[in-house]
Computed example of a mutant assay.
Amino acid sequence: MGEWIRNRAVVLAIVTLTTASVFVGAHLSLKESSPEKDETIAISPPTITLWFTQAPQMAGTSVRLLPKGGEPLDLEPATAQEDDPSVVVLNVSETLSDGDYEVMWRAMAQDGHTIRGDFGFTVQTAR
């Protein structure tokens, strides 16, 4: 009987660890962006695109673009792509001047947890 209990405890521990690692791996995170973090680009980007590991809830998701140290630009809210809702796009309706910009984002996972992040990029047109 003692060995049966010990074997059952080992199996339970393995199942618990496996389930925990799957749960941790299932959390929403940012995979990549365009422009990329710290990238210098030669033209004003028409969009800021964020690729997440899963589709965020758009009601709790936002993306803001601001000149480094300035106020956020007045842009339409970001939207999810219809064909892939894990991709969030912010249309940049104005031409950005040369300089440093910061993208600040917040995303809400399907389970309600939110994550935040930011990254910068530089616009440097050829003269």
Score class of each variant (00 low, 15 high):
M1R: 02
W4S: 13
I5G: 05
R6V: 15
N7V: 04
N7T: 03
N7K: 07
R8V: 10
V10E: 15
V10Q: 13
V10G: 03
I14Q: 14
I14S: 12
V15S: 12
V15P: 05
L17F: 13
T18L: 15
F23W: 15
A26E: 15
A26P: 01
A26T: 08
L28V: 10
E32I: 07
E32R: 10
S34A: 14
S34C: 09
P35H: 10
E36T: 06
K37S: 15
K37C: 09
D38L: 09
E39N: 00
T49H: 04
F52C: 05
Q54K: 09
A55T: 04
P56D: 12
A59W: 05
A59E: 13
G60F: 09
T61W: 09
R64F: 01
R64I: 02
L66R: 09
G69C: 10
G69E: 07
G70E: 01
E71H: 07
E71A: 14
A78Y: 02
A78N: 02
T79N: 08
A80W: 05
A80Y: 04
D84G: 03
P85L: 06
P85E: 13
V88M: 06
V89F: 06
L90N: 00
N91S: 12
V92Y: 08
T95L: 11
L96N: 09
S97D: 15
D98V: 02
Y101M: 04
E102W: 02
E102T: 04
W105S: 06
W105G: 02
A107D: 03
M108K: 08
A109L: 03
D111E: 13
G112T: 06
R116E: 15
G117K: 01
G120K: 00
G120F: 03
G120I: 01
G120L: 03
G120N: 07
F121R: 00
V123S: 08
T125L: 08
T125Q: 14
T125K: 12
T125F: 07
R127M: 14
